[in-house]
Computed example of a mutant assay.
Amino acid sequence: MTTPTPALSLIYVGDPMCSWCYGFGVPLGQLLERFPEVPVQLVLGGLRAYNTQVMDAALKDKLRNAWAGVAQRSGQPFSQALFERADFIYDTEPACRAVVTVRQHAPALALHMYHAIQQAFYAQGRDVTKAAVLAEIWDEVHGRTKETWGHIDFLRDFESEDMRQQTRDDFLQAQRWGVRGFPTLLMVAGGQAQVLTSGYAELDLLVESLTRVIAAAAPKPQ
């Protein structure tokens, strides 16, 4: 006789405008391919949510250096178009809210939307703080699927107070969990959560950590 296998799941806390989360997309994708049976819950962290300050030269220099480090470690491409703008406000709330909106109405596509926003922002230099741009990105994601929820519904729901509140709830949840940096990947087994990684991690480390948790949670012979 064996005891029931505890439910296993992953919780990924990140922000689509976090450069290390963008870099983390590669090992995360490989991990999910390796363990397709483990479901993933996406929680948005709010890296620079509600920022109202135009990005100055000092922040541009800081980000340029940070992005170079992410590119070197992850191999992900980065556009420099953002640094040529004089009016950019680095507010990550709209991008997070776009993912929350998709998660609410087409949950199977939430992670696709998350990664598509990252590609648009970092690789293509598009302004993902704008609702119209986020709607275009949703159309690109949506166009590759058979989902019926589309552009007009996205804009309507994205601007709703419900989605704004759900996004705030995600930010608060991340804070309650004590998440201090992104990406953070948690493993939940038998109702108990533990950190697999806080920050960027390579695939080998992720596989080793996840395999250890799964083994510990496996049914014990009676």
Rank of each mutant, 00 (worst) to 15 (best):
T3N: 14
T3M: 10
T5K: 10
L10K: 01
Y12G: 00
C21M: 02
Y22W: 08
Y22Q: 00
F24A: 01
Q30C: 14
R34M: 13
E37Q: 14
V38I: 13
G45Y: 07
L47K: 03
L47Q: 02
Y50E: 15
Q53Y: 14
A58S: 10
A58P: 07
K62W: 13
K62G: 11
R64H: 08
W67I: 06
A71T: 06
Q72V: 12
Q76C: 12
Q76I: 11
F78G: 06
S79P: 06
L82W: 15
A86N: 07
D91E: 11
T92G: 08
T92C: 04
E93G: 10
C96I: 08
A98K: 00
A98G: 04
V100D: 01
V100S: 06
V102F: 04
Q104D: 14
A106F: 00
A108T: 14
F121M: 10
Q124C: 07
G125R: 11
R126V: 09
L134Y: 03
E136C: 05
I137R: 01
I137H: 00
V141S: 02
H142I: 11
K146Y: 13
K146G: 11
E147R: 09
I152R: 15
D153N: 09
F158C: 08
F158M: 03
D162C: 14
D162E: 13
R168W: 12
L172G: 13
L172K: 15
L172S: 15
R180P: 07
F182D: 01
L186I: 14
M187R: 02
M187V: 13
G190I: 03
A193G: 04
S198C: 05
S198M: 06
G199A: 03
E202C: 10
L203D: 08
L206T: 06
L206I: 04
S209R: 15
R212H: 13
A218Y: 01
K220P: 02
